[in-house]
């Protein structure tokens, strides 16, 4: 090994730190921020060196837009809603479905960390809170979702869906954030609770497409059978899709606009945002015991 080190230096470098006040000195908030940023950085380094997931993540919504758009290409103009083409109808659905799919897969890297033993490195460390693991994943997925959303919005503009105003874009970002936060939390909960990646993939597989078809992403509520209308009106995706669709179709929208009609009432923009927030809070609270449990 290295010869240039004196015995004194050995002692300096290898001696234990017996200062028991370390924890008291640091603030919990700063610790949380530090560990979250470090974990986020790791995810982005991985993305930089293995960018295929991002590339696929941008190509896929394109294909949805083109294929689903072509599927209903010859549908009568006024079939869906007043004076809009299916392409215009579809864009908000694809934005949310793409963000949702990305977030639903957030648990996979954690599951692989568990299987390879890397997660133990995090679990034996004195983390301020294990929610930093959730926070890092959310920041990562949010960034990917925003890139994907931007691509979908631009592509949709080219196929004639129009482009919302800046405030509208901000509102879309907020809605994407809220749905991603909740679904990422859910996925990480699964990653901590399920026995392995096979089971996690199975759960993702079972949830992913059915939630798409049981939402208003591809067709409006009025097209659906009565029972599916009820399910779609309980589906968080619908609560994210409808306000975005409203923004797309009404440039004069406001926070008081009624953006959703469900069997149990009409909701305005603010109510829908609150419901999405409530969804997030419920998910995060329910995965808390999974995060803090000491495994078996």
């Amino acid at each position: 090994m290295t010869q240039s080190i004196s015995p004194n230096q050995f002692t300096e470098i290898l001696s234990p730190n017996l200062d028991t006040q370390i924890e008291v000195k640091n603030s919990i908030f700063r610790d949380f921020l530090q560990e979250t940023l470090a974990l986020t950085k790791r995810l982005f380094i991985q993305l930089k060196r293995r960018p295929s997931s991002l590339i696929a993540g941008v190509i896929q919504p394109f294909m949805w837009l083109i294929l689903f758009g072509a599927l209903f290409f010859n549908a009568p103009e006024n079939l869906f809603e007043n004076n809009i083409t299916y392409g215009q109808f579809l864009a908000p659905g694809i934005i949310i479905f793409t963000a949702f799919s990305g977030a639903l897969n957030a648990g996979l890297p954690i599951m692989f960390d568990r299987e390879f033993g890397f997660l133990n490195r995090l679990l034996v460390a004195p983390l301020a809170s294990r929610f930093s693991i959730v926070a890092a994943s959310t920041i990562y997925i949010i960034t990917l979702s925003f890139i994907q959303t931007a691509v979908i919005i631009i592509a949709s503009a080219f196929i004639g869906a129009g482009l919302p105003h800046l405030l509208g874009l901000g509102a879309i970002a907020l809605i994407v954030f809220l749905i991603v936060l909740g679904v990422t939390g859910l996925s990480l909960g699964f990653a901590f609770a399920l026995p392995g990646h096979i089971e996690l993939l199975a759960v993702i597989f079972v949830i992913n497409l059915p939630l798409l078809f049981a939402s208003t992403a591809l067709a409006p509520l009025s097209f659906m059978a009565g029972w599916l209308q009820i399910i779609a009106s309980l589906n968080p995706l619908t609560y994210a899709i409808e306000p975005i669709r409203y923004i797309y179709q009404n440039s004069d929208w406001s926070f008081a606009s009624v953006v959703m009609n469900t069997p149990w009432g009409n909701f305005n923009f603010v109510t829908v945002l609150c419901l999405l927030l409530a969804f997030d809070v419920v998910i995060l609270l329910s995965i808390k015991p999974l995060l803090s449990r000491r495994f078996a």
Partner: peptide, 9 residues
């Protein structure tokens, strides 16, 4: 190691 250092604050 940088990641590890941050996990131990």
């Amino acid at each position: 190691l940088n990641l590890q250092a941050s996990l131990y604050h």
